[in-house]
Nucleic acid binder design. Sequence first.
DNA 1: TTGACATGCAATCATTTGGTTGCCTATTAT
DNA 2: ATAATAGGCAACCAAATGATTGCATGTCAA
Lengths: 104, 104
Amino acid sequence: MDEVFKALADASRRSLLDRLHARNGQTLNELCEGLAMTRQAVTKHLAILEEANLVTTIRHGREKLHFLNPVPIHQIGERWIRKFERGKLAALGELKRQLEKRDE
Amino acid sequence: MDEVFKALADASRRSLLDRLHARNGQTLNELCEGLAMTRQAVTKHLAILEEANLVTTIRHGREKLHFLNPVPIHQIGERWIRKFERGKLAALGELKRQLEKRDE
DNA sequence: TTGACATGCAATCATTTGGTTGCCTATTAT
DNA sequence: ATAATAGGCAACCAAATGATTGCATGTCAA
């Protein structure tokens, strides 16, 4: 879980996920196109995404195809974000009450 | 958005949010209790959470009360995670297809 | 088979990050 | 008044991070 959060913390990596979401199964060079980064930098980002299981790859000859794995993202939503949504209204209510109390 | 992702990337900060979720409106010292970190380290984490608008504070005499703001978390869920859930089945399907193609 | 293409590996570098220590200020309680 | 309490500020430090460059390897096509 921590690895996923860490992987998602970088805007370049989130944009790589966006690219794969737009078109899945791209090669490293395709993913590099138009980015203000060297290929090696992209390689490192992809390695981190792969480590976090957000991206799966398969070699196809001399090419490496990258596929988005949406499962960990879904899990963040289910296991983490949802927890905070339950207490959401209560939290805001309590905050509002305290803010008003400030003027007493 | 980037600030929120960055703020959530650290396990200590997520655990501070957990603590506030368990009991909202805690002081700095309360949030420090039982943590293997100095008060100043916690202060810095809270500053980052506050900067990302995940935590709101109000001074109450010499105490500073910390409140969880669940809105940015909710936005991550709505604006970011949901996007990937829509393509979820398609993505997994395409991955499966490619994996099978590997053996050709 | 040999040159071009796709990717991998390793060393290096600057910056950011997470943390510490030491001291200072403001507020409350005795 | 003064001591204790709650928090703030600043300098400093080690380690992690994001990125680069240079070279190596593996694969395909002419």
